[in-house]
């Protein structure tokens, strides 16, 4: 147990990634702040509302925002949490970190020294995952702080508790993505291949989600889409139970994390 608290590897991860983490935190904070300011301090919000009325229904289905609703601005604020730029920023860590620190280290043979020190192999997986947990915590704190600052400075009335819930759902969702990536990484020994596999899996899942949202005839498949586990706009509209999303995300996380741990302990390096 003591070894799992040994912080050397964990500290190295933060040392390696310090600028990226800082950048992502500042990006999250400033993006959400600017998003709120754009929506509420300019006419862009009204313009977007009018423009959205002109869009075909399937596009609106994909975005998930319902025009004409009283909650339109709250929905748009929540959309900031699932904006493609934000999705990319958030997906950066779970995709790249396991590929670099598991498959990459096997490929580079840096594990040949590290794993002949008196540490449990599982420690690498546990601390890597713990590092991602802290990164996501920091990122979602950044996102929420941006929304909070924006609503406070521009005196906007937003139900902030919903945004706390969105952050919780997002945090759990991205943890599950990290666990899936970790599992992919422990089965591989090349960083490039691992990245390709993880990105391909995520792109396929995202396309699947996009298609079933755009085509109303496939609506019955929505409950089986991975990306439905993080739908900030639908949380605002209370169309999805946030508790279920969190629970399923955590279940996926636990399953893939255990697979990663078992495989990494048994594999050849």
């Amino acid at each position: 147990m003591i070894d799992y608290l040994q912080p050397d590897y964990f500290k190295k991860l933060f040392y390696d990634q310090k600028y990226i983490i800082l950048f992502l935190f500042l990006f999250g904070l400033s993006f959400q702040f600017l998003w709120v300011s754009l929506l509420f301090e300019s006419d862009i919000g009204t313009f977007i509302g009018a423009y959205a009325e002109l869009l075909p229904p399937f596009i609106m289905n994909m975005i998930g925002v319902k025009t004409g609703s009283e909650m339109f601005f709250a929905q748009m604020t929540a959309f900031g949490y699932a904006h493609p730029l934000v999705l990319m920023a958030l997906a950066f860590l779970p995709v790249s970190i396991p590929a670099r620190y598991i498959a990459g280290e096997i490929e580079n043979k840096t594990f040949d020294i590290l794993l002949t020190k008196p540490i449990d192999r599982g420690l690498i997986v546990v601390q890597l995952f713990l590092f991602l947990v802290l990164c996501f915590l920091l990122l979602f704190v950044g996102f929420f702080s941006g929304t909070f600052l924006g609503s406070w400075i521009f005196n906007v009335s937003l139900q902030l508790s919903v945004f706390v819930e969105i952050c919780l759902a997002g945090f759990c969702f991205y943890l599950s993505m990290a666990a899936i990536s970790l599992a992919v990484a422990v089965f591989n020994r090349e960083r490039g291949k691992t990245l390709t596999y993880i990105i391909s899996i995520m792109v396929v899942l995202y396309f699947y989600d996009t298609i079933i949202r755009a085509a109303s005839s496939l609506e019955y498949l929505v409950s089986y889409s991975y990306f439905q586990l993080y739908q900030p706009v639908k949380y605002v509209m209370e169309e999805i139970n946030i508790g279920n999303s969190v629970l399923i995300s955590l279940l996926i996380t636990v399953i893939f994390f255990i697979i990663s741990l078992l495989k990494f302990n048994r594999r050849d390096l």
Partner: peptide, 13 residues
């Protein structure tokens, strides 16, 4: 491993 010092052949740092 508390008692081992290892230098691998293909050394990567």
């Amino acid at each position: 491993f508390k008692q081992i010092g290892n230098l691998p052949g293909e050394l990567k740092l």
